[in-house]
Design a binder for these strands. Structure first.
Lengths: 109, 109
DNA sequence: GTGTTGCATAACCGTTATGTTATATAACTG
DNA sequence: CAGTTATATAACATAACGGTTATGCAACAC
C-alpha cells in the first residue's frame, strides 16, 4: 500500500492528470508534454518522475529524447482498490441517491 | 477537477484509506474510528475533515456522537476518472504484459 | 448547577511537495 | 572539435501536510 500512497498522491495533481490525459492519446516526449503548461521544464521533469515512481508512466530513451507512455500498473492498482469499494456504494446504502443523481444529467468533469 | 484533486489526495494517505476500509463494514463514530490508530484524536478529526471535504465520507450528529459513513460521491468520481483510462490499458498497448503479470500469482496486497 | 465524555479547533513544528533559476549531462549537428 | 537541443539534477524559497499538545464546546449524567 505504499504503492497506493504513491499512486493516489500522483493522481492528486492536476498537472499530472493532464499529462496522463495527453498520454492517453499516445506516447510523447518530455518536451511535447511540457509545452502546454505554463510551468518550467524542470517542474515537468519532476512531475514525470513522480508519475514514473507511481508506475503511472514509463520512460525510455530514444536518442536524444525520452519517450513517455502510460503504464498500466499504477492505473490498475488504483482501479482495483476502488473496485473493492464499488461494492459498498453500489449495493448498500446510497443506491437511491446515486440513482437520482445519475438521472439528472451527468456531466463528465 | 478540483474535486479530483481533493479526492485523490485524500486517498493517498494510509490512515484515511484504513478509515474508509473500516467504514466499508458499516458506520462508526469518531471515537470508534480513532481507536485502532496510534495517533491522537485530533489527528483523526482532521483526517475525517479531509475525507468529508473529498466527499468520501459523511458525518451527522447523533446526540453526543458523530456518526460517519462512506459517501458514494467521492468514490464514484475517482472511479469514473480511472474508468476513462481503463480503456487505454485494457485494449491497447500493455495487454500482453498485463496478461503475463496476472498469470504469475497475483497477491492482493 | 458540576463533572465527564465526545469531538473540534487553535497554535505550533518538522517534513514533504512544488515551484523557481542555474547548471550539468548526453545526444545530435556541423 | 564547438555549438545546440533535450532532459535531468542541484540549490533554494515557500506552501501544504500531518503530527503534537492545549483548549473549547456541546451533550450527557448526576
Amino acid at each position: 500500500m505504499q504503492h497506493l500512497d504513491a499512486t493516489f498522491a500522483a493522481l492528486a495533481d492536476p498537472v499530472r492528470r493532464a499529462i496522463l490525459a495527453r498520454l492517453a492519446q499516445g506516447e510523447a516526449t518530455v518536451g511535447e508534454l511540457a509545452k502546454p503548461f505554463a510551468i518550467s521544464q524542470p517542474a515537468i521533469s519532476r512531475h514525470l518522475r513522480v508519475l514514473e515512481a507511481a508506475a503511472l508512466i514509463r520512460r525510455e530513451r530514444d536518442g536524444q529524447h525520452r519517450r513517455c507512455r502510460l503504464d498500466a500498473r499504477g492505473l490498475e492498482r488504483a482501479s482495483e482498490w476502488l473496485d473493492f469499494y464499488r461494492r459498498f456504494w453500489s449495493d448498500s446504502f446510497d443506491r437511491l441517491e446515486r440513482h437520482l443523481k445519475r438521472n439528472k444529467g451527468a456531466s463528465h468533469d
